[in-house]
Amino acid sequence: MKKTLIVLFVLSIQFGFSQTTADFFNKTDRFLKTHVSNGRVDYKSIKKKPSGLDELLRIASKIKVDKSKTTTYQAFYINAYNLAVIKGIIDNYPTKSPLDIKGFFDKNTYALAGNKITLNNLENNILRKNFPNEARFHFVLVCAGLGCPPIIATAYRPTVLEKQLQQQTVKALNNPDFIKVKGEKVQISQLFEWYKVDFTHHGSEIDYINTFRKEKITEGAKVSYYPYDWRLNDIQ
């Protein structure tokens, strides 16, 4: 009888964990579909009714994710980052830029998976440090500035994460407003300058970009970085 109770207890914990994780992804998906359009966020509507976002972050604070379950771990923290960014904006809304909010990336903390963490720590220690060969994170983590690749109106999910990472990276690196090619000159986002180490494991930044481009940039093209656009990605 005791063994049966122990087994039932363990199963209930496992079931509750999986349910919570699934609940997080499903509710995140519904939230983003409601408040995101054309790569921009309707901060005004969220500010008026923040209960949906607050519920998501409450769920995220209690979830435990194991790094060995790679896609679940990555999908959770990508979504958590984007939701935390939105939370940071609406807590200070209206604002013109995340940079106008003191400590936005490096001081303000969010309760995620049982820990209090800043956006910078989430990006650099939870994701980049643990998965140093996955530069595609940079095309799905949305910092609330227009210089970021656009946020999508759906949750990142473990079962389709590889497809989503690839799709968003291809989309960004084929966007003429993101990669600006003029003859033998190419202007690329300061994102590549700040995180150069992530993009040059097996060659140059252009080698990395060309991996995902339909029209390849010519070898030897002169590279420069255009200024990052920190204006808020707010729905107008």
Rank of each mutant, 00 (worst) to 15 (best):
K116W: 02
K116V: 00
I117C: 10
T118N: 04
L119E: 10
N120H: 11
N121V: 04
L122Y: 10
E123Q: 15
N125H: 14
I126L: 05
L127P: 09
L127W: 11
L127Q: 13
R128F: 11
K129V: 00
K129F: 01
N130G: 13
F131N: 12
N133P: 03
E134D: 12
A135D: 09
A135I: 03
A135S: 15
A135E: 11
R136I: 00
R136H: 02
F137V: 06
F139G: 13
L141S: 07
V142L: 06
V142N: 14
V142D: 10
G145C: 04
G147F: 11
C148E: 12
C148H: 11
I151E: 11
Y156G: 01
Y156M: 11
R157P: 00
P158V: 05
P158G: 12
P158T: 12
P158K: 08
T159M: 08
L161M: 08
L161N: 14
E162K: 15
E162H: 09
Q166A: 04
Q167S: 13
V170G: 05
A172C: 04
A172W: 02
L173D: 01
L173E: 03
N174L: 02
N174P: 05
P176T: 05
I179Y: 12
I179L: 06
V181I: 15
G183Y: 04
G183P: 05
E184A: 09
L191Y: 04
L191E: 12
F192W: 04
K196Q: 15
K196E: 15
D198N: 11
T200G: 06
H201M: 07
G203S: 03
S204M: 02
S204H: 07
S204P: 09
Y208R: 03
N210V: 00
N210C: 00
T211Y: 10
F212K: 08
K216W: 09
K216R: 14
K216M: 05
T218H: 06
T218E: 12
E219K: 13
G220F: 00
G220S: 02
G220A: 01
K222I: 07
V223D: 03
V223G: 01
Y226N: 01
Y228L: 04
D229W: 06
R231E: 15
